[in-house]
């Protein structure tokens, strides 16, 4: 009962924060002088990128724990997190060019940050496809290895704007966030709202995957009993 109340409270808070974030983005945050109103895409783009990286980090950790413990629970977490990560990475790859067209005058350029993000998306798309084609007894092990090796591209993507010459804006530096205070507060609020939404999405995806596995197990036992 307490757990259910906590879940409802969590979802209500997420919903309210989402509304507050939308209000902050469109009403509270000022319009940027050079880029104009299109800069507000940044409030979706940056949290989505952060969540994609976080999701791939969870996949990485869960894959290590799976290889160590051989407990299917961790394989499920790694898989679901990769799926949610691909979802957010897709949002990053769509909102980025929509922002770039009016600002850079091109939809896409082979800039290090953009290229490494696209590679990252392909890596985790391949991870999801791999699970579909590999035999069941090898699936978890191979996915875990892929999940660990694939994560190597995350720090490369993150540091791409610091390691190479790039036209991608650098907002978060070692000195903090390089934007005005209202923009900073809006970004932090959007971060919090999207982070709670991400947790809720991941939790429900894991629940669904567990339900699927349990149903398949029951089905297999049922068929085994009644076929003999």
């Amino acid at each position: 009962m307490t757990k259910r109340i906590f879940e409802i409270a969590f979802e209500v808070v997420t919903f309210l924060l989402m509304f507050a974030a939308i209000y902050a983005i469109f009403i509270y945050a000022p319009i940027e002088k050079t880029m104009g109103i299109v800069q507000k895409i940044f409030y979706l783009h940056v949290p989505a990128a952060f969540l994609a990286f976080s999701a791939f980090f969870i996949t990485f950790l869960a894959s290590i724990v799976y290889l160590y413990k051989k407990d299917q629970k961790w394989d499920v977490i790694a898989y679901c997190s990769a799926e949610v990560g691909v979802l957010f990475c897709t949002i990053v790859l769509i909102t980025g060019p929509i922002w770039a067209k009016p600002v850079w005058n091109v939809w896409w350029t082979w800039d290090p940050r953009l290229t490494t993000t696209l590679i990252l998306w392909f890596i985790y798309l391949a991870y999801l496809m791999l699970r579909g084609v590999v035999r069941e007894n090898q699936r978890a092990n191979l996915s875990a290895v892929f999940g660990i090796i694939g994560f190597a591209n995350v720090p490369i993507t993150f540091f791409a704007i610091r390691l190479w010459r790039t036209i991608h804006p650098v907002i978060i530096t070692s000195e903090g966030i390089n934007i005005s205070k209202p923009m900073k507060y809006t970004l932090l609020l959007t971060f919090c709202a999207f982070f709670l939404f991400f947790l809720s999405l991941l939790k429900n995806r894991i629940k669904l995957e567990r339900l699927k596995i349990n149903t398949e197990n029951v089905k297999a036992v049922y068929e085994e009993i009644f076929s003999s």
């Binding site: 880029m35 104009g36 109103i37 299109v38 507000k40 895409i41 979706l44 783009h45 769509i94 909102t95 929509i98 922002w99 067209k101 009016p102």
Partner: peptide, 8 residues
């Protein structure tokens, strides 16, 4: 810009 923002 508004249209780009709306699309995004």
């Amino acid at each position: 810009g508004t249209l780009y923002l709306f699309s995004g």
